[in-house]
Every structure is written in C-alpha cells, then in structure tokens.
C-alpha cells in the first residue's frame, strides 16, 4: 500500500515539475492521471520490490556520489587511451563474482559496471558476471571487488 501511494505521489510530483503551471484545473487533471496510472500499475501487478525499489532510497544517497566519482575517473582513463596516437588497448573477457543476494542488487552491480566506461557486463548468470574490459587495468579494478562491496552495502539486508 505504501508503495502504491508512493508511486502515485512520485508521478504527481513529476507532473508538477514537468508542467510548472499551478492552476486548479491542471493540478486536478494531474491528480486524476497519476491515480489512474497507479491503479493501472496495480492491475498489472508491477508494483513490487523490483518494479519500485523504494527501500533502496536512503542508501542510494551515499552510493551515487561514489559511483559518479568512479565514472569520472574511468572516463579520463578511456579518453586518454582514445586520444593517444598508439592505441594501447588490451581487451579482456573475464568472470567475476557478484555476491549480491537479490536480483535488484545484481542489476545494480551489473549496471554500475556497465556505466563506468572501460568495463561492460556481457552476461549475468547465478552469482557471477562476465565482464568485457578495455584494458587489463580496468579489469583488475573490477576483480579487486571494491564495487562489489559497495553494491552489497547499497543492497542492504532487506
């Protein structure tokens, strides 16, 4: 129930932010349509811990800044490789453990790997991920398991 109300509230906030017009008619239309979409989602049974992972919200506040910093560092590395006249790449395909328990946690980890340039998750099966890395340096970064640990913290115990 909290999830459904949360979804309706989030949709209504999105409506307000995107329209920027605060007239009674438009606000009431926004309330009606966000409630309607929440009802549709309820009928489709997509509002669960996967479809609307509200429980991860507080922990995302510390995870995202760390992830953005990692992305900036990885971007600089890849950009330097592309600029240099000799192409110093050593592509690696390797398997790395993903110790998250839930599927949402694994998706978070796999997406974080893909989001940092230099490493791409190719497949996820069971508790391992297959990663393609542009250089062996980027591969060692994933193998060191720092991101795995942070993604586990983000996942929490719920």
């Amino acid at each position: 129930m909290i999830r459904k109300l949360g979804l309706a509230l989030a949709l209504f906030a999105l409506w307000l932010l995107l329209s920027g017009i605060f007239e009674p008619l438009l606000i009431s239309l926004g309330i009606i349509s966000s409630l309607f979409v929440a009802w549709l989602a309820h009928r489709m049974e997509v509002i669960d811990h996967e479809g609307f992972p509200i429980h991860m919200g507080p922990r995302a506040i510390t995870y995202w800044p760390w992830l953005i910093w990692e992305i900036i560092k990885a971007n600089i590395d890849v950009a330097l490789i592309i600029i240099k006249p000799e192409l110093k790449i050593s592509p690696v395909l390797f398997r790395s453990p993903a110790s998250q328990k839930t599927e949402v946690g694994q998706v978070t980890y796999a997406n974080s790997i893909t989001l940092t340039p230099g490493t791409i998750t190719v497949t996820v099966h069971g508790d391992t991920v297959d990663v393609h890395a542009l250089t062996t340096g980027a591969a060692d970064e994933v193998i060191s398991g720092r991101m795995d640990k942070r993604a586990c913290q983000m996942e929490g115990n719920s």
């Binding site: 971007n75 890849v78 893909t114 940092t116 340039p117 490493t119």
Partner: peptide
C-alpha cells in the same frame, strides 16, 4: 567501441 560510446553517454 561500446566503451567509447560509454564516454558519450555518461560524462
């Protein structure tokens, strides 16, 4: 090439 596209999509 996907790594290069990653730069364009993120930073």
């Amino acid at each position: 090439r996907m790594h290069a596209a990653g730069i364009g999509d993120t930073l």
